[in-house]
Design a protein around this nucleic acid. Structure first.
Lengths: 194, 194
DNA sequence: GCCTGCATGTAAACGGTTACATGATTCG
DNA sequence: CGAATCATGTAACCGTTTACATGCAGGC
């Protein structure tokens, strides 16, 4: 319907495996946090809504068959996982087919600050760039660590090549930005400042 | 006070030259749109608020001295420019000194789609990447054009080096992403897909 | 006078985060 | 038992976009 992308983030996550709201939060926090984040305030209401629309359903753990009474004995359904339905898969692939909007919000605070950096003086600008450089250097380290872990643990997962691609995106961008920081330091050192 | 960055975007813009709300909108749309955007719904209310706080003031065009009666004869003040005050400059430099938050929102739709791209099939993924590549190739062209225009028209502006730096950021990132797209195409071509 | 564009503004809706409330479970 | 943690949920708030309302200026 709308341009709500959280719906599809959840639907996509449920193609990996059935998950509860809590699981989904962990998935976003630990799995894809560097390019996508969700909060409980989004997850639970939208999960409920997706259920109403029939795009997800309560998972009836096929292999273990938890039995009706076991389920009924839990008054407040704890950790009830959802799975994606056929209709959900259809909605997901339809969204996948639509062109991705390049970037929802263009707000790069570092560039806004640098654009006006002459007002703050050279030292302030230098520290700004140094912090930014350190941030991306640290990001590269985590990307590399994640890649190593992935190659060791899930080299045969069918989605493995796609996971590597998202990591590669982060690695390339952060490497570029480290280089950009070095350029910026040189420029700032040479620029006439108050 | 808060983490409202629009305030500082406006204050910073007013260090370039005094501007009205309309001018500010054009400044963001035409000047820095690739890394910062603002809408009227933000600009006018915050401008009013900044005025109340004494961080900006109605510009009393010093050089031309529009005279009291000329100003009074305009019933609805048309295109009334604001300029930054000393207090405004102080607030701006204070904000500049604070470390920049790396990235407000982490939502890269292209990566979310690619992460689940196996669900959509190879062709869909390929087109996704192709569109993304075309987008960044076009961006690079506009960056290069802007850089050429800047070098021709404002090579002596004191902020010129900083403007070039923001452009360089965009150029480096988009060039990296074009390369990433080529990697992605190769990966997708080789990956086993439904 | 009338139309088009300039300019200022605002109301409503939206997407999202934060902080809190609540109950259930586990373990010392 | 009591404390910590797990898990679900929600209300309030915030920043932002969108769409619209208004009114003035200049040209036909």
């Amino acid at each position: 319907m709308t341009k709500n992308r959280t719906r599809y983030a959840i639907l996509g996550a449920l193609t990996v495996k059935p998950m509860s709201g809590y699981d989904l939060k962990r998935f976003f926090d630990q799995g894809v946090s560097f390019f996508w984040a969700e909060s409980y305030g989004q997850i639970y209401p939208i999960l409920k809504q997706l259920k109403l629309e029939g795009l997800v359903a309560e998972a009836t753990a096929r292999p273990e068959e938890p039995s009706e009474r076991a389920r009924a004995s839990a008054p407040h359904p704890r950790r009830l996982p959802y799975c994606i339905t056929d209709a959900g898969r259809a909605a997901l692939t339809q969204w996948l087919s639509a062109p991705a909007e390049p970037q929802a919000r263009r707000r790069l605070e570092i560039l806004l600050k640098l654009f006006f950096a002459r007002q703050g003086g050279r030292d302030v600008a230098m520290r700004l760039v140094a912090d930014f450089r350190a941030h991306h250097a640290a990001l590269i380290a985590t990307y590399d660590a994640t890649e190593a872990r992935l190659r060791a643990e899930h080299p045969d997962h069918p989605d493995f090549p796609f996971w590597l691609l998202t990591l590669s995106y982060g690695q390339r961008v952060s490497r570029s930005l480290v280089e950009w920081c070095d350029e910026a330091v040189a420029t700032l050192a040479a620029a006439p400042m108050p």
